[in-house]
Simulated assay, not measured.
Amino acid sequence: MSKLPKIVLLACCVIAAVYFLLSLVGQIQVSISSDETSEIQHKIVYKTESEKAFPRAKLTANAQRGKCKKQLPQAIIAGHLKSGTGALVEFLNEHPQISSSNIRTDVQFFNKFYVSRGIRWYQSIMPCTFKNQITIEKTAQYFSYPKVAERIRTINTTTKIIIILKDPVKVAVSLYAMWREHKSNHAHEYTFERMISKTNGTTFEIDPNSKIIKLCSYVQNMKQWLQVFERTQVLILDGNSFDDHPAGTLKDVEKFLNVKHFFDTDHFVFNSTKGKYCFRRWNGKVRCLPEGKGRPHPKLNANVIQTLTDYYKPMKKILFKVINQTLW
């Protein structure tokens, strides 16, 4: 037999082996991409009806190429305290086109670390995202901090702002419960009634200078935000409605952020123990909010609740006029 066919056969085997090794290297390069890319690839696989309709090809291709980068947030959840910001950012982070900062608690950059840590630190804690994804961050304290809106606009004039507000009476009670558990602001030393009232010793009268009362008086803070940002850049959400119907609220956010529709009612499972909704992923696993959410609130006298309601009633009317929107 001539040696030529053997040489040709050997060459073919070598070529096939090289091709196999090159394809294997390509697979390894995809598998060793950044943690953020792995998380994005994890988020791309979905099974529900709405998820099947979601156009994922572009995300998948980008993830395989590994061309993600850390970028400043295009949207910021700016508050308010005890109004559902934690649940909002956790749910939004399940959307394949949305990714939140790597710090899972309040970032507090614009109110606390703006000067000391600087913009490079802020960008470093953001996730690695692609061109067709949106980076978001959440800090509930931003809403009531005077300089935050201007600082955000200085960095990016096109930033979209999301503010979620609950009925101030509910927020006041929830704030007290959180402070009491954390033993902060003297809440563990005094009753709720004592924390919000004047100390004349005879009649119950709301103290407008009480920290709880001031934090739940939204009008002045809202005016400051709308003086810095156009109304079209600010999405104001009803926190009470979000508690009861999260899918509907999240659809409003999707539209505001200009991302594809993803959230449906079948994503949410109610936790009767906590009184909060959890998120059900495509594989059936249910992800609930941290243990601190849904803590018990103090039982209050009906007269105290009514006094608070009456106190905030005129402020609510002014707020709704300022934002040209009705809540609660």
Rank of each mutant, 00 (worst) to 15 (best):
A149I: 12
I196Y: 09
V169Y: 06
Y277K: 06
P208M: 08
A187K: 02
R231W: 07
I76R: 03
K274W: 04
Y114R: 05
H95I: 04
E193C: 10
I318F: 05
V259K: 00
I323P: 00
G275C: 12
M178K: 04
W121N: 08
K166G: 07
T307R: 06
T85S: 02
P96I: 00
A78G: 01
K70A: 00
L21E: 14
S184T: 15
M126S: 06
Y46E: 10
N62G: 03
L81A: 05
F130N: 00
F204T: 12
D106W: 00
G84R: 04
E230P: 03
E291R: 13
A17Y: 12
I236W: 01
K183V: 06
A53H: 14
L215I: 03
D238M: 09
Y277L: 06
S241P: 00
G26S: 08
E49A: 15
Q97N: 07
D35F: 04
I212G: 01
A149H: 03
W225C: 07
E193P: 10
K260T: 09
D167A: 09
V115H: 09
F20Y: 15
T273G: 03
V219C: 04
K276H: 14
Q27I: 10
T191P: 03
G201Y: 10
K255P: 09
E90Y: 03
V259M: 02
N209T: 13
A63K: 02
N209M: 14
K43R: 10
K166P: 03
W328H: 09
N156E: 10
G66H: 00
I44Y: 06
K43N: 13
Y312V: 01
P296M: 11
F263I: 06
K52I: 11
F279S: 10
F262E: 00
L88T: 01
P208V: 10
Q97R: 01
L226F: 11
N111S: 12
H80T: 15
R120F: 09
C68V: 01
I15Q: 12
Y46A: 14
G292K: 10
K255M: 13
M195Q: 04
N111I: 02
K260R: 13
A63L: 08
V89Q: 10
R295Q: 09
I318H: 09
A57L: 12
G292N: 08
H42T: 14
Y122R: 06
K223E: 12
Y218T: 07
Q325K: 08
E51F: 03
P290I: 07
E291T: 13
I136N: 01
Q108S: 15
T129D: 00
E291P: 01
G84V: 04
V8G: 08
K317D: 08
A177E: 11
R287Q: 14
S210K: 10
A140C: 12
P208C: 05
C128M: 00
F54G: 01
E51R: 04
K183S: 08
G248P: 00
D244Y: 11
K223W: 03
V25E: 11
M222E: 07
F110N: 06
K321I: 07
S197V: 05
T154A: 14
N324K: 14
T139K: 04
L59T: 01
L22Y: 13
I76Y: 02
R287M: 08
V304H: 07
S100A: 09
N283K: 15
S34H: 05
Y277H: 14
K211D: 13
